[in-house]
Design a protein around this nucleic acid. Structure first.
Lengths: 162, 162
DNA sequence: ATAGATGCAAATATTTTGCCGCCAG
DNA sequence: CTGGCGGCAAAATATTTGCATCTAT
């Protein structure tokens, strides 16, 4: 929470400023989860990823450190992190096929705004979004654990192109 | 609804109030899209679906009317409808596997609120959500064509259970 | 008549499972 | 030491593509 200036003015690629390398490792250690060599590699990559990761990219980068690291391990580790609410799973409106993307769950939820033309994804925080969630919690009498908003449209450049 | 409830543990009791049978057919006709026998069948099912449809269920129901209707045709028709913004694609937070669900795109966007315990899905409209979208459009200078919010949590009954 | 759809089979893509040997704690 | 974990292969799911044939307009 301390280091998250979380001021993402990103026009495209994700700027991961909200987490320090080691955060996820700490979170899992604190919960008594076994920290294997493979997990440490994956956690570090996720912690410091400059953009949204999919399984393919995560695996490729992990193999840079351990060529034998298996795809299944990637899936299992992501499951683990999801179960603990430490990563969020997105599909970014299926901009590219039906893969999923993952990002560390920061201190504050944000909205993903994607251009359907060029694929650029912006992350936006909004007081209105926080209020919306509180409204839902009240009205639906639900204890929210995950909230995901993905918005698609066309940016000025892509509008001109079409 | 005898057969379709077997696999569907409860994807939510959706009340389809927003569309009449024939709406989608009209929309496509107006756009000069060829209306084949297969498409008419699929459109009618989607138009009147009382719950969120996935490809499996849609295919099964369509085969009641035409046993030879192919799964590929289902995918292609859904693609068509997506391209024209006539259906929305959801994954309902992967409550059950990684399939996608589809619903007609009504006059007003709504939020999907799902209980991660029992799988019930509620649809909620919100003035706040509309304002949020307008804010995003303004701030990000984007022309929104699709907006999706999926919220997960635990309902009172499931909270007590855990 | 003909552009565009469908059916079928096969290819891709994505995720999960079973089993056995291995390693973090 | 040992129970959980990772690797490997294969299965299960989910989606897309190529092509010959058919049909809505």
């Amino acid at each position: 929470m301390a280091t998250s200036s979380s001021h993402r003015v990103s026009t495209g690629e994700r700027i991961n400023i909200s987490s320090q390398p080691g955060r996820l490792e700490g979170e899992l250690g604190r919960r008594g989860i076994r920290l294997t060599r493979q997990r440490r590699i994956l956690l570090r990559i996720i912690d410091t990823a400059p953009e949204h990761l999919n399984v393919e990219v995560l695996l490729r980068q992990a193999r840079h450190f351990d060529p034998r690291l298996n795809r299944v391990t990637v899936y299992r580790t992501l499951d683990l992190l999801k179960r603990f609410g430490l990563v969020d799973e997105l599909d970014l409106l299926h901009l590219r096929g039906h893969q999923h993307y993952y990002e560390t769950h920061g201190p504050r939820d944000h909205i993903h705004v994607a251009c359907l033309g060029c694929g650029k994804v912006r992350e936006v925080e909004s007081e209105l979004f926080d209020r919306l969630k509180r409204q839902i919690e009240r009205e639906c009498d639900i204890e929210i654990t995950v909230a995901r908003t993905e918005i698609g449209g066309y940016c000025p450049a892509c509008r001109r192109r079409s």
